[in-house]
Simulated scan of single mutants.
Amino acid sequence: MHFEPALQPATLIKRYKRFLADVITPDGRELTLHCANTGAMTGCATPGDTVWYSTSDNAKRKYAHSWELTETQQHHWICVNTLRANQLVREAIEAQRIPELSGYSNLSAEVKYGTENSRIDLMLQAENQPDCYIEVKSVTLLHAGQGFFPDAVTLRGQKHLRELQSMAEQGQRAVLFFAVLHSGIESVSAAHHIDPRYTELLTQVQKKGVEVMCYGAALSAEGIRLTERLPLVTKSLNG
């Protein structure tokens, strides 16, 4: 994924009301950016960090600029635009850069499924194979080199785990895909210290056949690309 037009830098003043952030540009202008990330964004929105933002030419938008990346004062790169995760995974699948998800002839997005009024992020299909349901999650919470998901209690995420388990029990292929969009993260774990129920469900669904994949990414102001598979570890913050 390449950013066209190129992203522009600014210094973060503050994030507020979940969807907004104020920044100051190198030439001293103050801008308000739209923030597509509704999560806690712990460690991703520290005042003084460098923000990289895109600009839309859509005249109907109230805020023309969107917060895409954070370059932290510790020199980590983070993709904070959660809309990018699905795009990156789709791009990588179509480019055959995820061997575990190759061999399918059709890819669909946002397909209704399950019993809890859900939409699967991506579905892969091929003749004479079970359908493959892929739920994508963006991982950006870092602690001591390890990434954690979620960064806040997520009833929606719990629902997605139940839906994936149901698909696996019906003989379909079910995949939870962690897109690790923080350059400092080297492994991924369920955040038991934040959402213990999510951790319990993750352990349960894996036993029922749900696959969990974690992939890191190369991030820069020029673009983002999923790279290598990272380990999933069953370890809480307290060990």
Rank of each mutant, 00 (worst) to 15 (best):
F149K: 06
E186D: 05
E127I: 14
P26H: 00
R97K: 13
H143Q: 07
E71L: 15
A217K: 12
S108C: 09
Y198E: 04
F178I: 01
A152L: 03
M167N: 07
Q129V: 14
G103V: 06
A126N: 12
D22Q: 13
I24S: 10
Q204C: 03
I24E: 01
L237A: 09
E163M: 14
H65Y: 11
E222T: 13
I24H: 04
D131I: 14
I194T: 05
A168D: 01
E211Q: 10
H34C: 00
D151F: 12
Q8R: 09
H192T: 04
E200N: 04
I93F: 10
L201R: 03
L101S: 13
E200K: 03
R119V: 14
L161Y: 09
A179S: 10
N128Q: 02
F149P: 02
T154D: 12
F178Y: 01
R225S: 12
G39C: 00
E100M: 09
R15F: 07
S183T: 12
K159A: 08
R119H: 13
L181C: 04
A64Y: 00
D22R: 15
Q165S: 12
E127Q: 15
P99S: 05
Y113S: 05
D151W: 14
P5R: 00
S138G: 03
T72G: 10
K235S: 06
Q87F: 11
L88P: 10
I134R: 11
A168V: 15
Y16N: 05
R229P: 03
A144H: 01
L7M: 09
D195H: 12
H75Y: 05
L88V: 09
E127W: 14
P231E: 13
H2R: 15
S66E: 15
Y63I: 07
Q73A: 15
G147S: 07
G239M: 01
T50K: 08
V139L: 03
A95S: 08
W77H: 13
R162H: 01
Q129A: 00
S108L: 15
T234R: 06
G48C: 10
Y215T: 04
T46L: 13
P150Y: 02
G39N: 13
L164R: 09
E4S: 14
R29C: 04
P231I: 03
A191T: 01
I224F: 01
G48M: 11
P150M: 08
I24T: 07
K207C: 05
A10W: 11
P26G: 09
R156K: 11
